[in-house]
Design a protein around this nucleic acid. Sequence first.
DNA 1: ATGTCGGCTATCTGCCGACAA
DNA 2: TTGTCGGCAGATAGCCGACAT
Lengths: 550, 550
Amino acid sequence: MAQSPASSAVAAPAPCEGAGERKAPAINGELWHACAGPLVSLPPVGSLVVYFPQGHSEQVAASMQKDVEAHVPSYPNLPSKLICLLHSVTLQADPDTDEVYAQMTLQPVNTYAKEALQLSELALRQARPQMEFFCKTLTASDTSTHGGFSVPRRAAEKIFPSLDFSLQPPCQELQARDIHDNVWTFRHIFRGQPKRHLLTTGWSLFVSGKKLFAGDSVIFVRDEKQQLLLGIRRANRQPTNISSSVLSSDSMHIGVLAAAAHASANTSPFTIFYNPRASPTEFVIPFAKYQKAMYSNQISLGMRFRMMCETEELGTRRYMGTITGISDLDPVRWKNSQWRSLQVGWDESAAGERRNRVSIWEIEPLAAPFFICPQPFFGVKRPRQLDDESLEMESLMKRAMPWLGEEICIKDPQTQSATMPGLSLVQWMNMNRQQSSSLASTAMQSEYLRSASNPAMQNIGAADLARQLYMQNHLLQQNSMQFNPPKLHQQMKPINDLSNAALPLNQLGAIRNHQDQKQDQQRQQQSGIQAIPLSQAQAQTNIVQAQVIL
Amino acid sequence: MAQSPASSAVAAPAPCEGAGERKAPAINGELWHACAGPLVSLPPVGSLVVYFPQGHSEQVAASMQKDVEAHVPSYPNLPSKLICLLHSVTLQADPDTDEVYAQMTLQPVNTYAKEALQLSELALRQARPQMEFFCKTLTASDTSTHGGFSVPRRAAEKIFPSLDFSLQPPCQELQARDIHDNVWTFRHIFRGQPKRHLLTTGWSLFVSGKKLFAGDSVIFVRDEKQQLLLGIRRANRQPTNISSSVLSSDSMHIGVLAAAAHASANTSPFTIFYNPRASPTEFVIPFAKYQKAMYSNQISLGMRFRMMCETEELGTRRYMGTITGISDLDPVRWKNSQWRSLQVGWDESAAGERRNRVSIWEIEPLAAPFFICPQPFFGVKRPRQLDDESLEMESLMKRAMPWLGEEICIKDPQTQSATMPGLSLVQWMNMNRQQSSSLASTAMQSEYLRSASNPAMQNIGAADLARQLYMQNHLLQQNSMQFNPPKLHQQMKPINDLSNAALPLNQLGAIRNHQDQKQDQQRQQQSGIQAIPLSQAQAQTNIVQAQVIL
DNA sequence: ATGTCGGCTATCTGCCGACAA
DNA sequence: TTGTCGGCAGATAGCCGACAT
């Protein structure tokens, strides 16, 4: 089978951080985001993120107009997702094309500070402040050498400094800075019959300088200091084909994976470029976002959902769709990766080909949010089985919660014997999964909600319910902690959600037999009943987030 | 040892090798070589080559104007040189810049066919046919929009079709194909006072289309079908900085090494790009060239040498220099790599900064060639020692001669017991080295030459001697083979040179103690004398190459 | 409201020989 | 022999309102 190429056998990592690969003078964040698009968000520095090599690989492939990852060896030792600390984010723009991208330094972690997780939650709620801008797709006349730029009236009035209409005709000189901080000067005039706003002198220099064509877009931003910023967004032409004369595309592709594999093996920092316009999807996700999607969304075939998409002119719009399939995108290289594992159909087939595969964390399920349902463990109806997916999940969680060790071993004062030797976390999760999927889970949810301590939670809408539940759990967290693993409450913080969510794991692969299954069953029957306190404790420490419609 | 301006024995344009990364329509080899420069030679397809990851890495670094390989992990499992079979060579040119480069598919080998080695020898002798061309560095007037291109008179008369001087003024339409097979049309006119050749209409389109500036060069080639070809060579501006918006330079650098490491570990093919203008030095060398330089050149500090360098206008010139140091370029990452291990000083400090480090196979030593000196093994005067360098050398040779196995074990009918358990190939070589360096080696060489079977070899010049010896050995090979390891004489062929050359290993590192040294000594004393037949046999099958000044 | 066009300069492109270097 | 320039014509760039959508 495959091999672990060099990566694992790599010696000295790179000690010193980004030694200034570029000397770019701190790109304006407003302009960068305007060019990147309204849906692009970058996790906060210092936060916990999930990195998907598969998504990264897709970005490279897309940029090279290369089929798939032919010729690129698989990296069996490279997990399909890495939990990383985001050390730095630097906004960049290509000096030649003005393409925006972000350079991120990630470090795979096995343990992390409480703040990192909180920061990743922050990313979910934090909205970027609305900025004043306009975006126009250039017409043939705009880009022709025959004339200037016709400014949409509302745009000119909103963004440009107002003209002195005592002049005949009213005109002024505009200065705008592009993403490299170069200043472009235009003559802004209000003339013609009927009257309209035009940019004349200076405009053609800009068009030729930036190599703009009809179909490309320009963005004028007015920043908080009332200064004009000027960005461009090119039409989706064929990929720029970064293949160079010194580096084969194979090498580039390998480089991305090898860098990640090396970093993974050594938990050393590595650097990636995220190009929001080249890539179909973000491949560095706030950990909290991933977590929430994975463990609080009930995903099933045929489910209806909404998803934000970018419109022309930098707006956003919600589109509706249906989940038509759940499967690995690449079952060979990236088994159980969750990366774009949902096949979807869209209600409006127009509006250009929307992607037919998305990831769980990109969508908003339309079914009521699936609330956490911790419940007593009454034993097992069917033998538990360990499959590849479980093993991988377990590995992922061990990275995140190393204090759990090989087996769950919680010492709970209320219980005689809370240790569950031989019962791994994932096995326990699988038990829960089977239970919750076996019966009317919504009924149990209601039961749980009614029994919750806050009486206000009864008989209210789902969204509000969720909000309140969220608040409540936060309060609980701040108060008494019955669930206190050793060394846990100081600065390390467990991702409790993982352990008692009803896992929507049906899409992750068939359950196969495992040789330990009989032993597992025995252990569970012996010690299973003691799991109750664990469930209770976790229910109280959970962060339950509901779908908040923005 | 002159650069063999070897063949563009480039076979079929990549027999569907790289799954068609580019659909370039088979680039003209003459034009490619004209643009690449007179010193660039590509080993023949199917031949045996030595690949230097270090040199490859240098090319990437140079193309990214990045200091060194900071941030890039070292690959301890990646040898500093890989013996590879050259599966394919495809000539390429960057679609945007016309930069020429070659895509090569290499496969590390542990064993190889006889033809592969012969092909690599072929590369040393084969000269590319001289082609008709001229190269002019563009002046300010040539590139200005104000006028056309002033053609040097001799160039026009040599390369262009002759004008019809009955016309007044004499003029014609020229058509030339660039490296992408695009046709450019120029008006060629002979006018002015005094008369001169000019390209007028069409010229400025070419200049702007190719983005040429004063200082860049154009090359007009007349091929064998009397057609005009047109190439460009840009001035040495700052590196093009291939860093893209989707791939960090770290990733690119890692990609190159990871690809090689992976290929090395799996002896699987990998693809590299060789850009002759971006790289200071070729990093894929014909095996025979490497072999010859390593084992027949006597290199020492203070030695004088000559080296071919490229002049302006695509000529070549020999420069003289002195070896001022012998050391590893990067003793940490690439110990004993031989890659640019010679520090040199040049007689003419002018003519632009010449490189101050070169590799052994790039120079022509001025001292007389050092001939092979196989001689009986009389036992050991000092204990053998194994150092890092020896181990590495041994590993290298085991790759090349796997049939030798862990220990030399030759069954020779003329000997009672020819097995030499415990005596490794490198140890044996070290013995020879010590012997040959201990006494007047030239005298022994003469002794050997006189005792050779061909009487014509006496009293003739060194170069001719070598040539005859070469012929003779080839004849011997075809006749009786006393040295017949099993399965060897069919299609596998040993690199005999390695085993009895007087190794110029002094630059390769200090000899250190080894714990097995006493045991080795004992074994050698027990069985050493039986090694004589081996030496004799090898002497007969040797390929001895002399310094042939071209 | 705004995309495209004809009309009209101002500027640039590009061919020529003159004149050095 | 050949690099640069002034002179000159033709082409293009680029500003204007007219007109249509």
